[in-house]
């Protein structure tokens, strides 16, 4: 089975998580840890770049649900970017576009923070 990788980057005060591979229940804890770490470091402005993610299951989406309230309470947000169509389809199906900003590319997602 394909693995999963989270790597961290940053643009100014905005943290970017790059997801790669296969995000399901097995690999969800890795993403959870990465997000938890950002929370612990009080980095609440987060962009998640999905460009190299090939699969996401509902459990993968669940991870985002677990953090969003706390992050927004702290004046931050999670913005999602660069999804392949089939990844976006899953987000769309489960009604995520009304809850999260989903942008075409990372730059737009970062801009969204700096403009608001």
């Amino acid at each position: 089975m394909e693995g999963f990788e989270v790597t961290k980057g940053a643009t100014n005060d905005i943290s970017v998580l790059y997801l790669k591979g296969y995000l399901d229940a097995h690999t969800a804890p890795e993403l959870e840890n990465a997000l938890q770490k950002l929370m612990d470091e009080q980095n609440y402005k987060i962009v998640v770049n999905f460009s190299e993610l090939n699969y996401i299951s509902s459990a993968g989406l669940g991870v985002f649900m677990g953090f969003i309230e706390d992050i927004r309470k702290n004046g931050g947000d999670i913005k999602l970017s660069s999804m392949k169509p089939k990844i976006f389809r899953v987000f769309d199906l489960l009604g995520f576009p009304t809850l999260y900003d989903i942008l075409d590319d990372e730059e737009k997602a970062v801009d969204k923070f700096t403009k608001s």
Binding site: A25, A28, P29, S57, S58, A59, G60, L61, G62, V63, F64, M65, G66, I68, E69, L94, G95, F96, L99
Partner: peptide, 15 residues
């Protein structure tokens, strides 16, 4: 248990 919770949160948009 974790898998169950993640799946529910993602599928139902609950936190």
């Amino acid at each position: 248990m974790n898998l169950l919770v993640y799946s529910i949160m993602g599928e139902m948009t609950v936190n």
